[in-house]
């Protein structure tokens, strides 16, 4: 598995795409810091980017990589290597190289800006952690989708639809149901709904770190307990880990079952 992981990473590093991704983050980070007068604002803007673009890029990258290297994969399958090792190796290769681009691309401009000496360093680190988690989760989901569909076009559309669903439509339905059932106690419902979507979960985790938690606290006792103490961060973090494990297990299960 590590050999395949190594090959995938080198393959991706040689390809142009991870550099374009890196340059994109470099530019984004520097422009944001240039335009925003302070770090706090830049981090809030980045939050929007991380919760929307990182999943999208993870999805597209994952699915493209799988279909592109399909022939090579089939060649590998003929070798005496465990199937799950091949796919997990490729998956981790993509996810790690994407995460590296994210960390380096955003890290460099912020380091130059003097992040380490400011008090915002923990907010930035949690932003990077959330971004990395989202990369891992969405790359895994896209790999799972790619494994399920042999047809490229079908796989691609399902993956994009999945992203659209989790990034936009989910929140829309969530909002409508909150407004529709406003007469009922909604604390537990809304917290559960947040847990069921990794993007919302990442956003909530960041909001907790960004001190906006006080805005959320006034709505009810359960919110206050969740957002006002460390309980919220701990639970969100655990659920985020579960979220990244489920699609990986899915890849293993699918790859063992699939008939090539």
């Amino acid at each position: 598995m590590f050999k395949i992981l190594k090959y995938s990473i080198f393959d991706l590093l040689r390809s142009r795409w991870s550099f374009i991704y890196l340059v994109f983050y470099l530019l984004l980070g520097s422009v944001l810091l240039l335009l925003n007068s302070n770090l706090s604002n830049a981090i809030i803007t980045l939050l929007n980017v991380v919760t929307v673009l990182v999943p999208l890029i993870g999805t597209i990258f994952g699915i493209m990589y799988y279909y592109d290297s399909k022939e090579f994969t089939e060649l590998l399958l003929a070798q005496p290597i465990k199937r799950s090792n091949i796919f997990l190796g490729q998956y981790f290769g993509v996810a790690i190289s994407l995460s590296l681009s994210l960390i380096i691309g955003l890290g460099i401009p912020f380091l130059f800006y003097g992040l380490v000496i400011s008090e915002k360093v923990f907010e930035f680190i949690s932003l990077i952690i959330v971004g990395t988690f989202l990369t891992f989760i969405f790359t895994a989901i896209s790999f799972f989708i790619a494994l399920s569909f042999d047809n490229k076009i079908k796989g691609f559309s399902v993956a994009i639809l999945m992203w659209l669903l989790l990034a936009v439509i989910y929140d829309g339905i969530f909002l409508i149901s909150l407004v529709y059932f406003e007469q009922y106690p909604l604390d537990v419902f809304s917290l559960t709904a947040v847990m069921l979507n990794p993007i919302d979960l990442g956003r909530t985790l960041m909001l907790l770190k960004l001190d906006i938690s006080a805005l959320l606290g006034y709505t009810g006792a359960i919110f206050k307990k969740f957002f006002g103490t460390n309980l919220g961060s701990t639970i969100s973090f655990i659920v985020l880990i579960i979220w990244s494990l489920i699609p990986i297990l899915g890849i293993v299960w699918k790859s063992n079952k699939k008939d090539f």
Binding site: N48, T51, D171, Y218, G220
Partner: peptide
């Protein structure tokens, strides 16, 4: 306006859908 009517919706703060 929405948060005023249904305070719980504030949990969607800074979501892409809200921006849209």
């Amino acid at each position: 306006y929405i948060v005023n009517k249904t305070p719980e919706t504030i949990i969607l703060l800074r979501s892409l859908f809200i921006n849209l």
